[in-house]
Design a protein around this nucleic acid. Structure first.
Lengths: 221, 221, 221, 221
DNA sequence: GATGAATGAGCGTTCATTCAT
DNA sequence: GATGAATGAACGCTCATTCAT
């Protein structure tokens, strides 16, 4: 949790710190991200950073649970699906919001992607990751269950298997597919912040449709 | 590459070292795995370990590319699908072999799972990981393409999206689903080597069928 | 290159570190010089040393190429030979400056002497050593060639042999001769920082004259 | 001192060990020479080497003080100057023997050269080096003193300076000059065992004459 | 006598965190 | 509140030597 001191900072200085931290945590896994690089890039002293945050883990946690989440919400909220929309519409909206956010805010999206994949987390941070995953799972589980009740989904579909599929598809799988579309490896994509910008909105939509189509109709002839 | 010294060791000692290394690398990502813990658990001196392997990376690489691979091959080879089998049979066999291996050799399966997800790898090891992924992708891509030509798959399915789905489902997703069936988190499963043993073969088969069913028919009503 | 941190240190602390490092590198060849001994003698932590310098090699390089060089320049600059001086005058000045420096700053002179002789250098440091030698050789070669053209040297003298002689005489040979005059072995001289102070300036001059005399007239009857 | 066991070895095995050790100690300074490489090259076990010699230092010492010395003696003894020869003849013989030995037995010559220059020696070995140097100095000192009495040398030449010159010229300086003639650095020469073979006997003689000429007549016009 | 596996002290280096100024 | 110098535990790795077989 940042101290009040942090919020009393001038907006520009605060943003400089945030940007430096986002860049660092986006370009290296947690264990390899260096506070030294962050303070250098932000132009603040190490002591100051420790007055704003309780340490490396605290900074990282805040970035993910507060900053990234709020940005994501803002970006996604704009295009929320109409209430009562079918599960397919909801999923398509979610996918589109995801790929659009990745294309618009590559560093932040990378940060989120790293978080999902990162294994180097302190136990404390791992708990945050698990909680995050649990929430997504709960949301998907409810979405699919109610869809099944509305007969939008086959009654004999294994919900937990479907949740697993979508969880991946909305998270790491999305970046994986983006990378594939761009003809680059996932690693290369993570190292190239604005690569996603090369895809225009139509291409993003086509990608999303391919995924939802597979999920809806399966691959069988 | 282990030195010949390593293979001249008594089988029990060699196995002690392998087990200690597998446990360590399975329970912590590469960067956090400590040689000290391995030598302590194995009851050998640090110097000895360095006479067997060229270093941490060498030990890890051997464990993955030689030891794990050979164990996996032995486990999977037994139940290879008949030649000319349909894509569904092939996939089902692959899935079953995977979950059975995970249930039979949980530590090794964990090791493999970590490897796929690990971000902290030395460049050299990262190359091994990418190569491994590329091979899996190529195999799946060919499998699906020829199936499509045989009209076992819909002609308008996006192969690369389908490959992405299967890649995940056969790798990390498999452990994820196993964890879900056992009612535990993936992390808990990774920390509980013999948890998978609680599922009997019928349950494993049911799990596999749920996944292939989703892939074949989709979730749509 | 030392960090700015190093130069922000109090002069006394900085000097303590320099002295400790000079002593260590002067009393043991590079490969056997221990950072532990330096930090102990300087009374700083190992981590601090690493904030000042990039490592052992960096500290050593700076000591030689910056610190020693600047001290030497200061010491030698005072008594530069007049422009247009004969080769004999130039050489005598160079020798005198050398022996006086060795007598005045024995530890530093030892450091330089070790550097010239040391075989255990990292490739990077070895390059510095070779460059240093090449510069000295070029300077001497030019000095002797132009002297030959001015007929201060015999026309049939083999310049490269003469350069070899002077290179040694101005470097390691100088300490060797100093040791001989003091009736001790070179090793003993290197281990006794202020032994050189026992020779007064007249004796130093006599030593220099003996060397230049041999070089000028030869030993033949 | 090698154990009697060593001398009971078959000549071929003994020579294999010697050659491997010479090669290793010739191609790296003492501290960087590895026993592992020697036993590998010689095809003997490490334990055996420790039964022949008391350790690394013992092997090195024997190689220098017994083996190299005897080989040198054999090579030089053949062309000893006639009794009662002038100092110039004696020196020329000594120089020629030296350069010829270097050209004929490059590895051994390198070993000797390394020994003279090496700073990484154990105290015990350093004593051997000092003793060796002292003997050479004594021989030269006596040679020059008696020559001076016979008026072959100027009466006012500083013997100790002249000894210093010759000591260098006959040792490291010789290799230095050889390297210069071959157009390579000393380091390159040490790394290229048979480079010296490129100079024919006439060229070697010319080199020797250049040096003795400088020593006899000086460089002055 | 020969073997080669075992040893362990010791090295240079890293980096999140602390705290005096 | 801001600074940045100080810290030190911990890591991967080396290699001459020992000693049971």
């Amino acid at each position: 949790m940042p101290s009040t001191t942090f919020f009393n900072l001038s907006a520009s200085k605060r943003q400089r710190i945030i940007d430096a931290a986002v860049d660092e945590f986006a370009s290296a896994p947690y264990a390899r991200a260096k506070l030294d690089r962050i303070v250098d890039a932000a132009g603040v002293s190490k002591g100051s950073l420790y007055q704003y945050f309780d340490g490396k883990a605290d900074l990282y946690r805040w970035l993910l649970t507060e900053y990234l989440a709020s940005k994501k919400l803002a970006a996604i909220g704009a295009g929320a699906p109409p209430a009562g929309a079918s599960v397919w519409t909801v999923l398509e909206h979610a996918f589109l919001a995801g790929v659009r956010f990745a294309a618009a805010e590559p560093s932040l999206a990378q940060l989120g992607a790293r978080f999902i994949r990162d294994h180097e987390l302190e136990p404390e941070l791992a708990a945050v990751a698990q909680q995050h995953k649990a929430m997504s799972e709960a949301w998907l589980s409810e979405l699919l269950t109610s869809a099944q009740q509305r007969h939008e989904l086959r009654s004999d579909v294994d919900i937990s298997v479907a949740v697993g599929f979508l969880l991946h598809a909305l998270g790491e799988g999305m970046l994986d597919q983006l990378a594939r579309r761009l003809g680059m490896s996932l690693e290369a994509l993570l190292a190239t912040p604005d690569a996603s910008a090369r895809l225009n909105d139509e291409e993003l939509l086509a990608l999303v449709r391919s995924v939802t189509d597979l999920f809806c109709h399966g691959a069988g002839a």
